[in-house]
């Protein structure tokens, strides 16, 4: 099952600080999500959050008696938009913490920062960047989603390490924590990337118009609000 940062890993001041950052991020996401959600995409976003909850239950083995699970930020952002993606993962973390005793209540801010904000900013940011330079095709969208997801997981591990360096309650060398966290999360990132690319490709194959991150690919009837990209 998903195991997130529990209570007691990070001291109170840094947990509160992370809570403030998380609250600001969620507030920003609530404002931004209005532009991404309508009568059709709002239910899709709820279903995406539910899918991420389900997928986070599916730990897959990585090396040496260790497992990993989907974080889902990159996937959610590609399917329903980055602001809504942050909200999807945050809702999952909230329910996991309050109902399933997974992820500490005082660590909710830390978990939202790592698993919702960092994964969306890094994973979706990279995805957008690649979508712009790659030829416009479904294969490109799948490849871009893979790369975004694969990087998003070690990025979350890096930010966890930074938070631990600021407010860890134990005295472990930061170098050791960084090496171990990033090492194992590079492997977990491969699983994240496979699940993300397969899911994005599946939805693109069935209903490409429902994929927020690939709106330009296959939606001739789309009402564009952005200027059309220059011909390549």
């Amino acid at each position: 099952m998903g195991v997130h940062v529990p209570d007691g890993f990070i001291n109170a001041p840094v947990s509160v600080g992370a809570g403030v950052v998380a609250a600001a991020g969620v507030a920003l996401a609530l404002r931004g999500a209005r532009r991404e959600l309508d009568d059709r995409t709002a239910p899709l976003a709820g279903l995406t959050a539910a899918f991420i909850f389900a997928a986070q239950m599916l730990n897959f083995p990585v090396a040496g008696g260790t497992s990993g699970h989907l974080l889902g930020g990159t996937l959610a952002a590609i399917l329903v938009g980055p602001y809504t993606g942050v909200l999807c993962v945050s809702v999952v973390l909230l329910v996991q913490g309050l109902v399933f005793a997974d992820g500490g209540i005082t660590a909710l801010g830390v978990n939202i920062v790592n698993m919702a904000l960092v994964t969306v900013v890094v994973g979706y940011g990279l995805f957008r960047l690649l979508i712009r330079v790659l030829p416009r095709s479904r294969a490109s969208a799948a490849a871009a989603s893979f790369v975004g997801a694969v990087v998003s997981v070690p990025a979350a591990a890096v930010v966890f390490t930074l938070i631990y360096a600021l407010g860890g309650t134990t005295d472990v060398s930061i170098g050791k924590v960084a090496t171990a966290m990033i090492g194992v999360h590079v492997l977990i990132g491969i699983g994240e990337a496979l699940i993300t690319a397969v899911t994005v490709s599946s939805v693109l194959a069935i209903r490409p118009d429902l994929v927020y991150g690939a709106r330009g690919l296959a939606a001739p009837l789309e009402l564009r609000t952005e200027p059309a990209p220059a011909a390549r």
Binding site: F9, T66, S67, F160, T170
Partner: peptide, 21 residues
Amino acid sequence: ASSSPDGLEKVAADKGIAAKE
């Protein structure tokens, strides 16, 4: 699903981060 500890849990246990959990 795998019941092995996940990445964070394993690192925390191995390196002693979890002492004050």
